[in-house]
Computed example of a mutant assay.
Amino acid sequence: MRLHRIHLNPRCKEARRDLADPYQMHATLCRAFFPPETPCPQGSLLWRLEPETDVEGRPRVLIQSRETPDWSRIPVSAWLAQAEPGIDLVQKLALDALQAGQAFRFRLRANPCKTVLGKRQGLVHPEAQREWLARKGEQHGFALPESATPDYFDFMQSPEGRAYHDIRVSHEHMLKGSQHGGNAIRVYSALFEGRLTVTDPVRFRAALETGIGHGKVMGLGLLSVAPTSG
């Protein structure tokens, strides 16, 4: 399981197309990880368009997969501006020694939703979003903090988004994509950031490997974490 960070060329027409349509972005990324004659297996990669750009204004994308990418398979050479070396997450996060009680900072772009009359509806109310994430934590082996220290609260303040006592939610919008047959896809998206504590190492590692929630083809579900002390 490796994590890759790439930077796209905003001057490239095809890159701008993919940035505007996450379904097409997923299709392009699959070309790098699988040969043209091999369909991209469901769940074979997770990815996320980051809200920040690099110092040159180039969009950043994180991709997580067990497969090794070959960026030369992407047909438009100008699409990719830079690809950083992949990170071995098992080694970097010491996942083989993961224990209950470990704390991590996290980032998750996800589809907080509920099902009404057989259809998923995005959750836009702050408390409903937090409750959704807490339920996902129970399902996937982690818990949100009961309270926060002052320095952590200061860290979570932001001119955009909303600050809660343990998480921040920002960059809320409706993702729109188009399948090859012309069918339109709409998925509500929100970016969660904060701290969590591992409660079940086995389930937590599985969440890191397979993602959280719906809309993974649209760039949702990738749970990225970094160890934290205190």
Rank of each mutant, 00 (worst) to 15 (best):
L3K: 05
R5E: 15
L19K: 06
M25N: 02
M25W: 10
R31M: 13
F33E: 07
C40S: 11
Q42D: 09
G43K: 11
S44V: 11
L45D: 09
P51C: 05
G57S: 08
G57C: 03
G57M: 08
T68L: 15
P75G: 06
A78M: 01
A78R: 10
Q82D: 12
A83Y: 10
Q91C: 05
Q91R: 14
A94G: 03
L95F: 04
A100K: 04
Q102H: 10
Q102S: 08
R107L: 00
A110R: 05
P112Q: 05
C113W: 05
C113K: 04
K114P: 00
T115I: 15
T115K: 14
G118D: 09
Q121A: 00
G122F: 12
L123H: 08
L123S: 03
V124L: 02
V124R: 04
A128G: 15
Q129V: 05
R130S: 11
E131H: 13
L133F: 11
K136H: 07
G137F: 11
G137W: 10
G141Q: 09
F142P: 03
F142R: 01
A143W: 01
Y152N: 09
F153N: 06
F153A: 15
D154P: 00
S158D: 12
S158M: 01
A163N: 06
H165K: 12
H165D: 14
R168T: 11
H173K: 09
H173V: 00
G181E: 06
G182L: 02
V187R: 12
V187Q: 14
Y188N: 02
L191E: 04
L191M: 02
L191N: 00
F192L: 00
T199V: 09
V202A: 15
R203T: 02
R205C: 07
A207I: 03
A207T: 03
T210I: 01
G211C: 07
V217C: 10
V217T: 14
M218R: 09
M218Q: 14
L222Y: 04
L222V: 02
L223Y: 03
L223C: 06
V225F: 04
V225Q: 03
G230R: 12
